[in-house]
Nucleic acid binder design. Structure first.
Lengths: 325, 325
DNA sequence: TTGTATGCGTTATCAC
DNA sequence: GTGATAACGCATACAA
C-alpha cells in the first residue's frame, strides 16, 4: 500500500504538496500537480480513509439507531435519511437495537469515541436521562414527540394526532372504539392510552381492557386482533391502529370472517403508506420520509454550527379519508 | 479530551500499560490496573475509535450496497445482515445506490480506502468487470445468482426457480402466462425472460410483448398491471410476479374489477413475505433473511481467513401453495 | 508556492 | 510485568 510519502518521493515533492493536490488546495503549481498525479497513477495509490478520519475533525459517519429495519415505518425513515445523506456526503451506520438498551448505549459510545459525528434515534428504549449524558459528545436527534426541550427532536405531535383520530371516529358516530398499540411500555403508547382514556371518559364510555390491543406491529398482528375480536362478547365498532400494516391485517382477516368494513368495524390507521392507498384504508398521514431527511439536515447544520437549529421540530399530520371509516 | 498519555501520567505508568489495561491484556499487575482505572474514571476518559481503527488492521465496518432500503426484499436482507452483524461485532454502513454506478463505485472506494472491511452487494448496476478490480482490497459478496466463479455469491438459483414457477402454472393447466419483472435490464431479468421464452416455445405459445410487464416493484405497480390487463384484447390466465407486494397489488386491484383469482387470473409470486401469508398468495419462498446472515458470516470468515469459504453458495427455494393459483 | 515538523491517539515490538 | 518508541497515514501551522 503506497502512502503519500512514497508519492512525494517519486514526484519529487513534499508530502504537504501531495496532500494539497489530493485535497484540491489552491497554490500548487501545474507541474507539481501533474507530477503528483503521475506518481499516484504509477503506484496505484489510494488514500487511507482511516488516517484521514483521524487527522480530521469529522468522520462523516452518522449512527442510526432503530429497533428493526424491516418494518415499513423504519425503512421509510431510513430512506429519507439515506437520500439526504448522499447529498451531504455522510454515511449512515445502522445500529439495530431490538430495543435493547445495551445496544443503544453502544451507539452512544460510538459517538463518544468520535467515530460518529452524530446519532439519530428513530426509536429507543434507553432513558433520556442516560442519553442526555452523551449530548456533550455530539448532536443527538430524536425522532419522537418529546417534551424534554434540551433535546433535538423531529416528529408529529403524536397525542394530538391520536386524539384527532379518535375524534374523527367519534364524529362518524362511533362510541365503541378500540385501539391497537405497538408497545404499551413504549415512549408514545403511554400518552396514547392517556388520550384514549380521556376521550372515552368524555363520551361516557367505559374503558374495556380487552379493547386495547397490545404488541401490535405487523400485518399478522392485525390478523390476531380480528381473532380476538371474534371472541369478544361486547364488540367495538371502530378501531384506531398505529400503522397501516396492522390495519391491512385487520381488514384482510375481517373479510375472511364476513365482517364488513366499515359497517361492522371501522378502521382508521396511521402512516399513509403504499398499502393504505392500494387498500383504500382511511389513515392519518405522517411525513415519515421527511422526518428522516429533516433529521439528517438538522444534524448536519448542528455539526457545522452554521445556524442556530430549533430544538423541537413539529411536522404536520393529515387525515386521509378513504373507505374504511 | 483525555488521551492515554494523560492517563499514563496520572496513573504513573506508561502508555503501553494503559493500552494493555484497556484491551484486557494479561501481564498487568493488579495495582497498576487499578491505578489506570482510577485515572480513567477521574478524567472521564473515552478511547478514540478513529485512532484505534488506524492502528488496527480492521475497521469492523461493512458496506452494504442496495438500490433502496424501503423495499421489503432489501430491508429483509438487511435485517439478516444486522442480526448477524451484532453477533460478530461488525457495523453496517448503508450505501444507497438507486442503481447509480457512481454511488456503487463510491462504496468500492471505501473498501479500497480501508474504511470498510468488506462490501456486500444486495443488488447492483455496476459491471462485474469493474467490481473485479476491487477484489484485491477486501472481500466482496454478491447476493445474486452469478456465473462468474471468481466472486463470492449467495443466492437461490434464480432462473431455475423462475422456470419452476412457470412449470407449476403450466401443471395447473395454464398456457397463457404473463410475467412481471423488476428491471428488464437488471441482472436477473434477462435470464428470466430467457426462461420464459423457452417455456412458451416449449408449450407452443407465442410470445406476446404486452404480457411481459416491466418496471414492476411495488404494490402500486401491481395495480397498474391490472389496469393494463383490462385493456388487453387477449388476456393471460396466469401471471408470475417477482415479489409478493406486486402480487398483492394485482390481487387487490383485481378484486375491484370483479376479476376472480385464481379462476380468471392465477397469481404466483416470489419471496413468501408476511403479506403473502396474510393474503394467501401462492408464492415461491426465498430465504431472504438467511441470504443476509449468510453473507455476513461468509464475509467474516473470509476476513479472518479461518476456513476456505465456498465461492458460490446456493440456497434453496420452495413453492408454497396457497389460494391464488 | 513549497517544505519541514508536528499532531492526531492508539497499538505493537522490543528490550529490560 | 513494564516502559520507550516506532509505526499507522494523513493534515496543517508555520517558516521559508
Amino acid at each position: 500500500m503506497a502512502t503519500i510519502r512514497e508519492i512525494a518521493k517519486i514526484a519529487q515533492v513534499s508530502v504537504a504538496t501531495v496532500s494539497r493536490v489530493l485535497n484540491d488546495h489552491p497554490y500548487v503549481s501545474k507541474e507539481k500537480k501533474r507530477a503528483v498525479h503521475q506518481a499516484i497513477k504509477e503506484l496505484n495509490y489510494s488514500r487511507n480513509l482511516k488516517a484521514i478520519q483521524l487527522a480530521n475533525k469529522h468522520s462523516n459517519l452518522v449512527g442510526v439507531v432503530l429497533p428493526k429495519i424491516d418494518l415499513p415505518y423504519f425503512s421509510e425513515i431510513v430512506e429519507g435519511l439515506a437520500e439526504e445523506a448522499r447529498k451531504l456526503h455522510l454515511q449512515l451506520v445502522l445500529i439495530q437495537s431490538n430495543y435493547e438498551t445495551e445496544k443503544e448505549r453502544e451507539a452512544l459510545e460510538l459517538l463518544r469515541g468520535h467515530l460518529m459525528d452524530g446519532i439519530i434515534f428513530c426509536s429507543r428504549a434507553i432513558s433520556l436521562t442516560e442519553v442526555r449524558t452523551y449530548q456533550e459528545y455530539g448532536p443527538i436527534i430524536l425522532l419522537e414527540d418529546t417534551d424534554q426541550d434540551d433535546f433535538y427532536s423531529i416528529s408529529i405531535p403524536h397525542d394530538q394526532a391520536f386524539s384527532y383520530g379518535l375524534e374523527y371516529l367519534h364524529s362518524k358516530g362511533h362510541k365503541k372504539m378500540a385501539i391497537a398499540l405497538n408497545r404499551t411500555d413504549g415512549i408514545n403508547s403511554q400518552k396514547r392510552i392517556h388520550s384514549y382514556k380521556k376521550m372515552m371518559e368524555q363520551i361516557k364510555e367505559p374503558i374495556r381492557k380487552n379493547w386495547i390491543f397490545d404488541h401490535c406491529l405487523s400485518m399478522e398482528d392485525g390478523v390476531s386482533i380480528v381473532q380476538k375480536y371474534l371472541l369478544l362478547k361486547e364488540k367495538p365498532t371502530a378501531i384506531l391502529t398505529t400503522n397501516d400494516q396492522l390495519a391491512a391485517g385487520v381488514i384482510l382477516e375481517a373479510a375472511k370472517h364476513q365482517i364488513n368494513i366499515p359497517q361492522d368495524l371501522a378502521v382508521l390507521s396511521f402512516d399513509n403508506q403504499d398499502i393504505s392507498k392500494v387498500m383504500d384504508i382511511s389513515t392519518i398521514g405522517i411525513p415519515i420520509k421527511e422526518m428522516g431527511s429533516e433529521a439528517l439536515k438538522a444534524l448536519y447544520k448542528i455539526r457545522e454550527g452554521l445556524q442556530p437549529v430549533k430544538k423541537k421540530r413539529e411536522l404536520p399530520f393529515k387525515l386521509i379519508e378513504r373507505l374504511t371509516v
